[in-house]
Amino acid sequence: MNNLLEVKEVSKNFGNFKALNKVSITVPKGSIFGLLGPNGAGKTTLIRIINQITIPDQGQVFLDGELLNPTHIKDIGYLPEERGLYKSMKVGEQALYLAQLKGLSKKDARTRLKYWFERLEIGDWWNKKIQELSKGMAQKIQFVVTVLHQPKLLIFDEPFSGFDPINANLIKDEILRLREDGATVIFSTHRMESVEELCDDIALIHKSNKILDGKLIDVKKQYKINTYEVGIRVNNKEILEQELSNKFDISEANFKTLEDELKLNIKLSETDKPNDLLSYLSSKGEISHFVELIPSVNDIFIQTVKNN
């Protein structure tokens, strides 16, 4: 079994509103899976279904090959987007309580909490009340509580919100380390640069339907635009630009260079080879810049959502 999680044709209606329409996703073991989509697309509903908070109208969810059932609660760690803690409860007590709800014994929970609190350098917060902590501090505790019971599947909904860049990096590193230790991560966020950086697989949900999924690299290939960003030093820029525009589809490019160069995006047709373009250009002048344009997740997101 290579997939930790399989969601099969899951649908969910709230009254007349269709929140999910036959959505299927597969999350490979040990991967970081980006669950993307505009606001109100149905991501949270899907996550809640995986957490057994909401029951789907149709479809099934399998975790590690088994149909999802209440014993799986201990296998999943969930950090919701709307998150908080009991304000008037002490940090330690609260963390112990939440850990015990996930099935840890009090003793185990205490040992592991000690470990994590030291690791994140928050050991001296144990007897503080949540209302005395800042938002970022509370977020750290929530993160600890989410991962404490060493679940197979971690679901993070906007995990970096509320963190300063240093702490966000800290949490990012912890997530990567957890993955190395064998956890699978589902990651829902609107920050495309984190998706770019972390995710192996993505799925895009829009208006209750899944409209795109796969390995991030495959998706990118699929959205390949065959366009190269080119910088070339020539004496007469206008003449070369004219020449090129006769042969290729060109547009203005914008990147930083040291000298005043001709900067263009050149789109090749199916038959053109980049090497041919390169040798053609090298005969015209000195090439300072030659890069294939890879669509960013951001571009893919916007393009796909707009087209649907």
Binding site: I76, R83, G84, K87, L98
Partner: peptide
């Protein structure tokens, strides 16, 4: 209401019914 306003509720009900 307290559990709702402090937003801990979703964390709790991902563990218990």
């Amino acid at each position: 209401i307290e559990e709702k306003t402090s937003r801990i509720i979703e964390i709790i009900i991902s563990s218990v019914k």
